[in-house]
Computed example of a mutant assay.
Amino acid sequence: MKLSARFPKILACCAALAVSSAASEARDLSPAETCIAVNDGLSLGAPLPHTAEALKAHRPLRIVAIGSSSTVGLWMVRKEKTYPGVMYRELLRLDPAMQIEIVNSGRNGDTIPGNIARFQRDVFAHRPDLVIWQIGGNDFTWGEGIESLGHRIAEGVAMLRAQDADVILMDQQYTPVILATHYAKMQAAIASVAREQQVAYLPRFDMLHKTVEAGVSIVSLSAFDGLHMSGDAYDCTGRVLARAIMAAVR
């Protein structure tokens, strides 16, 4: 047999071995570590100029995380286990000289209009360099079209940017209860605003979905209620976000 005829078979064999090896390695990792591995190099899709300026000037970086229960860190006993808490620890690991102030302005059960109504007291009052706005988990029952949802999100983003703050939009979690809803409508609205307003975007839904595709059970990424994230999912979200922030400013 000629080498040219055998070459495709050799390539196919090598590819199969590589996939098998990757799957084996994934099985050896914890759910959080697998999540981090499959999302290595994730980009926020937009620069963070105010964040970069604060770090360059060696002044405290002020971050406000606003949203609902995913920001509060529902079912996490210690604040260090919430995604803002994990993010804080990971940022310091990446740059021990960094000065960081993080305010967790999450509220269980909150919605996009509820978040916006709290901006003045729970966001602007802290004069942040960076705002991470986690949205979507409690808004898919509105029955509104994408245009209406997008308008509300765009309104909120414009208000945040008017305060000279960088913005990162974070979408929904990938859990059984969310999957049973019309989640795609909310996903499309958030992604559309991020693209049109040219703000940073953490695609949490896709991030966790990729982890499940890598062999991690969705149960391992979900709390007992099937709606909120597990400790592993909070851990991955905080660490991946911290790494993406540092990549954006460098």
Rank of each mutant, 00 (worst) to 15 (best):
223 A>D: 12
215 G>I: 02
71 T>I: 05
72 V>S: 02
20 S>C: 14
92 L>T: 09
116 I>V: 11
102 I>D: 02
153 I>D: 14
16 A>M: 11
232 D>N: 13
172 Q>N: 13
11 L>Q: 11
61 L>T: 09
70 S>M: 05
11 L>F: 10
21 S>P: 00
192 S>I: 01
55 L>V: 15
212 V>S: 08
184 A>P: 10
239 R>C: 08
7 F>T: 11
32 A>Q: 11
176 P>M: 12
82 T>I: 01
109 G>E: 10
23 A>E: 03
40 D>W: 04
246 M>E: 08
48 L>Y: 02
167 V>H: 08
142 W>K: 13
212 V>G: 07
92 L>W: 07
231 G>V: 09
45 G>N: 13
194 A>R: 01
212 V>L: 09
133 W>R: 06
16 A>P: 05
74 L>W: 09
216 V>Q: 10
217 S>Y: 05
230 S>T: 07
130 L>T: 10
85 G>C: 04
124 F>Y: 09
209 H>G: 09
122 D>Q: 11
87 M>T: 06
248 A>Y: 01
134 Q>S: 15
79 K>Q: 12
19 V>F: 11
115 N>R: 01
230 S>Y: 05
53 E>M: 14
33 E>W: 02
62 R>Y: 08
101 E>P: 08
149 L>V: 04
194 A>P: 00
120 Q>G: 06
32 A>K: 12
58 H>S: 15
22 A>N: 05
10 I>R: 13
201 Y>C: 03
9 K>M: 11
112 I>W: 03
211 T>I: 02
11 L>W: 04
155 E>K: 14
25 E>C: 12
188 A>F: 12
180 A>P: 03
6 R>A: 14
41 G>Q: 09
91 L>P: 00
68 S>Y: 00
50 H>W: 14
184 A>M: 11
113 P>I: 14
132 I>Y: 05
142 W>C: 00
217 S>Q: 08
198 Q>Y: 10
219 V>K: 12
185 K>Q: 15
83 Y>C: 03
13 C>W: 04
80 E>W: 04
180 A>Q: 14
190 I>R: 05
72 V>L: 07
218 I>F: 07
29 L>I: 01
122 D>W: 01
153 I>C: 11
29 L>G: 04
1 M>L: 10
